[in-house]
Design a binder for these strands. Structure first.
Lengths: 209, 209
DNA sequence: GTTTAGCACGAACGATCGTGCTAAACAAGG
DNA sequence: CCTTGTTTAGCACGATCGTTCGTGCTAAAC
């Protein structure tokens, strides 16, 4: 391992990658600086110096996980055209992201949301809530686009639809990992499909194939 | 504080009640024997003696939480007649249980499921998975009853319906606590209602009012 | 050749964790 | 009154937690 100036960034990324993986299993509070250090073959203090406090490490971990989420879920789905197709692609992309175990313990943000949901407000909780809201907004916007294009009925409420779709996605994530049974991903896929069809216009239904 | 023989059971219940409340906020691993002891004004070792190990304390806590869950969610809903009415009542009862904050950090079992979902198998994880499966089965059975009675269509799949209903309930629990906004409970109520109507026969739709 | 900055190390800190071992307080039965 | 069993407290243990401090090494800057 060479240690030239600038190598700190590489080390930092390695730390955050491992931290996010750990956090998806044991939670953001569950990650320990000592365990991360031994896992990376470096000293506690050397690792600690990169962040200054555990809370800052947690925040950096969330930011890194956000990038991985964007890369794994959002980017592939943004290849689909706006509207109902993209909405469908987003859901499918999420389920694939769960199935591929991008994070070994399941969706990082689902775990973090569950962990910090009942906590008092603070920087970490706020950041998690922000990430969550952003994802929901992405789904709702895709739904709104679909309505504008006449793929979803005028009576369709994008936010309600987004809530129900994400409910299926999240539950698939939980059950998939709790019971280690991939059939729950298919349950979610069928739920998404039927829910989309329920709000789709005839034109929208054609698009869904 | 009197300490007669048999008072150990009272103390034990007080411990478990506090432990379950704590666990709904900080998780089952997050409960600490020291914090419980100071919270109850007793010594660590005195409290510890009741269980013998932290894992046994966790298992007892789950069992206590299960009783509270049955009392708060199941019992009220079992007043409704079998079938679609009971299915609806179960969902409504769960949302009320979340809203009333029976556990201060949200649904105990949702939190436990999220916490132990990605962990290696063990007594605690297995018990959580059992509780979860039991609840899902309760929902699915109510749906199956509804189908037998002709309130739900013959094409309706009770397990799929149960999955989708529970997805809405769980998500309401998460968002309600993460964003401290009770509107998500209404979102879930509307989701439940429209989902039930989607699989209901005309007779079933009449029953739903 | 000297200075500066980046990066990681080892040792130690006070605190808290779960877990033992022993003894004291107390109620009930002989 | 003494014994017995239950319930709780006191004390201490090894481990691990996040954190701080002083130090050394290497590459870049001057």
């Amino acid at each position: 391992m060479t240690r030239t100036p600038g190598s700190g960034a590489v080390t930092r990324e390695a730390i955050l990658r491992l931290a996010a993986n750990q956090a998806s299993v044991d939670g953001l509070e569950g990650i320990s600086i000592g365990q991360l250090a031994t896992g990376l073959g470096m000293s506690k203090s050397g690792l600690f110096a990169h962040f200054g406090s555990k809370e800052l490490l947690q925040l950096a971990t969330i930011e890194d996980a956000r990038k991985r989420y964007v890369e794994a879920v959002l980017v592939p789905a943004l290849g689909a055209p706006r509207g109902i197709r993209r909405l469908d692609a987003l859901c499918d992309s999420f389920l694939s992201y769960v199935e591929r175990a991008v994070f070994p313990g399941g969706c990082f943000f689902a775990a973090a949301m569950a962990e910090f949901g009942g906590r008092e407000p603070g920087p970490v909780r706020d950041k998690i809530a922000d990430c969550q809201r952003q994802w929901t907004t992405t789904l709702a916007r895709a739904a709104a686009d679909g309505r504008e294009r006449g793929e979803l009925t005028a009576a369709c409420e994008p936010e309600q639809l987004a809530f129900e779709l994400e409910a299926a996605l999240l539950s698939a994530n939980w059950y998939f990992h709790l019971h280690t049974e991939s059939s729950y991903l298919d349950r979610a896929r069928r739920a998404v499909r039927s829910r989309l069809e329920a709000d789709a216009t005839p034109a929208g239904r054609l698009i869904l194939r």
